[in-house]
Amino acid sequence: MFRKLHEPEGAITVYVDGIAASAEPGESIAAVLLRAAPHWSRTTPVTQSKRAPYCMMGVCFECLAIVDGIASVQTCLTLVRDGMRIERQHGKRSLSA
């Protein structure tokens, strides 16, 4: 859906639903999700419709995903880290309570 203008400097690797993706230090997880097919971040808890990053500034909450095991993370406000595990979030979150 989106592409980078340049080769990432000091590229790191993150995993989106287990699939390795190249990322650049300093960019947000949401930016990576918009480059990694199938380009959506979560399904809604109401009708399970697919949603993707929309505002990129923390006010729409469409980019929520599971990051290193923590659900409902605002990925547009969270920067990538090497080895980070990102999972698309399906509907209501479940608890291992």
């Binding site: 592409r3 980078k4 959506w40 993707a52 990129m56």
Partner: peptide, 24 residues
């Protein structure tokens, strides 16, 4: 407007600024 692939212009500009990326 809730479909993936619909974003705000501001969001796209943020992607350009902070990630150097543009629509494919």
């Amino acid at each position: 407007w809730t479909l993936p692939g619909v974003l705000t212009v501001g969001a796209a500009q943020i992607l350009l600024k902070s990630s150097g990326q543009i629509p494919e």
